[in-house]
Design a protein around this nucleic acid. Structure first.
Lengths: 338, 338
DNA sequence: AATTTTTGTGCAATCGGTTGCATTATTAAA
DNA sequence: TTTAATAATGCAACCGATTGCACAAAAATT
């Protein structure tokens, strides 16, 4: 029981060849039903378990998908991962998940490790400070499908899944303006990442469209880590013209902003209206409830998983599809009402 | 470039044997430095990448650790996973993560898949409805180390990492009593899981110690999913004796309770005091801030990872250590003040 | 100079499945 | 009844790295 049983053992027990055993286990058509049954039953009886290493070596594939994310402990990311895992699991794919912790260096190492581990495909959401993408070339040259989601770059033959951040930013800005705000601010994530750049661009477009002033206080670039929120609050309160509308690139950060603003005696939404991003659960917990852009993380994960698996199974060719845009949606709540 | 290079290719290029190449790549002592250098350089030059399948097959190990969790998109769990990933990554281990989605059936399948995938160790947090643990026996019989965290069971030779839920529950109860509550309620998760059972037991002990009544309203068992919170709120408001203190087994659920209680016109903490569990970020966002039990998820992950890796490297023997208890801590905030 | 050690490499088996091709048994067609 | 077609199974090479053992060359010892 404790020593592992191979197809050779089974073959010997049943007086057939290992080839027949292998074919039976894989339900190959050229084996008679009787033999198959006999072999399957014996395999079950003696607790045979296939050795994936050997099978992988032979098949040159692992039924494994690699995932690299900046960090896995954010509501959004864990939701995406949950989606990916769910679809992958259903069709028998395993997920090797690693985090770059926002470091390009780690991202490179992780990519290499996953390459060596023989993942059949790679899903990536980029680290904030990744600037060089050579580490992904190994995958493309080896024709290992590579898909970017959320924090994406445009690489030849690599599809991307994301939302239309440009118009999401625009809608957020426009909404604040329609609510009567005239002195707007955007608290952004790292602008090296296109999604943040786009959100800001869209936001700025809304301002431009309404001839609102754009100045030094229109944009604050942060790492979206609530730890360093104090300086941001100071910037807000220190603005010469009173800020009356803020669009924050993450709900979590927005919630913390509201909390700190309240502490500073600033009322939300009366003094400042706030719009967040993602529709995290926290947006409905914070008081006032947070107006936000719904960003369907789970759906994104499911889609990423399904796309890559469909590609692996050969049913679609992802290389040609370049960008999949998910629908987003402004959800208005108390934090921007008047 | 695009076709993969093996040690045989390298051997041929350099007129040495594959064995020498292999040994060089693994920095075996019996190879001269000159040869090693020559081989390493060539390997680098031609972009050699080791084939893990072959290496794993030969070594009978994968440098991979399997993880099964109920779901990966909860703040607590994703934090634990982040901790595990971090330490595993640092020492070159990969993590295959799968979720049971609270289903015993899926947990079984996942365990099987991970066994087949040849993980060197398995870390598990159990699904709520798991009742049968035979699927883990394969691991123990094959001497694959198995460690449970958070939602644990006592299996021979399997260490567990958790906090002292009994005393945490007791402290939560005692705190509410000290704040003047006399009519207490506990909103629990699935009592099949020992951690929830223990939290309730501890809580009950506090009540007993202070001669407080225990009745039908003392305990509500839920799945801790905010979706079905309404019936719980109704139970609270419908209690003949007004409930004035609630201990909730998760911060997220507690936050939602507070939100709904406020909607129902019940003031927290004036009418009802609330204590949560986990010290999620949401506990500091909700107003009033939530008194809670700090449960160090990241630390738990790090510890789980470190333990299992130390065991794999042979530096410690986990089989003998049976339980690792992490320190928890009551954090008092507004939701239970008076 | 002869012998023993030490060092550095190679041979070949092994890990456990997979699969193209050959072979035999069986059934259908002529 | 003979021949062609079909079905079922086995042989043996292959996937790519690892490693015990043998062996030759170089260094150390007597």
């Amino acid at each position: 029981m404790s020593k592992k049983i191979t197809i050779y053992d089974l073959a010997q027990m049943l007086n057939v060849s290992p080839a027949t055993v292998s074919r039976s286990l894989n339900n190959h058509h050229s084996i008679s039903d009787a033999t198959k049954k006999r072999i399957l039953e014996k395999a079950e009886e003696v607790g045979y378990r296939t050795n994936k290493f050997a099978a992988n070596l032979s098949n040159q594939k692992s039924n494994t998908i690699g995932v690299i994310v900046p960090r896995l402990n954010s509501y959004f990311m864990s939701t995406v991962l949950a989606g990916i895992e769910q679809v992958a699991n259903e069709v028998g794919y395993n997920l090797i998940i690693s985090q770059s912790l926002e470091s390009e260096e780690k991202e490179k190492i992780n990519a290499k490790t996953l390459l060596d581990s023989g993942v059949d495909a790679l899903l990536v959401s980029l680290a904030n400070d990744s600037k060089d993408y050579k580490h992904f070339e190994h995958f493309t040259t080896r024709k290992i499908p590579l898909l970017f989601f959320d924090r994406v770059i445009d690489l030849p033959h690599c599809p991307t899944i994301l939302i239309d951040n440009l118009s999401a930013g625009y809608e957020a800005g426009k909404h604040l303006i329609e609510q009567g705000c005239t002195n707007l601010m955007h608290i952004s994530g790292n602008l090296k990442r296109k999604l943040y750049e786009d959100r800001y661009k869209g936001f700025k477009n809304a301002l431009l469209e309404h001839q609102l002033e754009i100045n030094d206080y229109t944009l604050i670039e942060t790492d979206l880590d609530p730890k360093n929120i104090q300086s941001v609050i100071e910037t807000i309160t220190g603005s010469p013209k009173k800020i009356d509308g803020i669009f924050v690139a993450s709900d979590n950060y927005a919630a913390n902003c509201i909390k700190e603003l309240k502490k500073a005696g600033i009322r939300v939404p009366q003094d400042i209206k706030v719009v967040g991003f993602n529709n995290d659960p926290v947006s409905e917990i914070i008081s006032p409830n947070l107006t936000t852009i719904n960003y369907p993380g789970h759906k994104m994960g499911v889609l990423a998983g399904e796309s890559i698996i469909a590609h692996l199974k050969g049913s679609i060719n992802l290389q040609s599809t370049n960008t999949i845009l998910l629908r987003h949606q402004l959800i208005t709540r108390e934090s921007s009402s008047n």
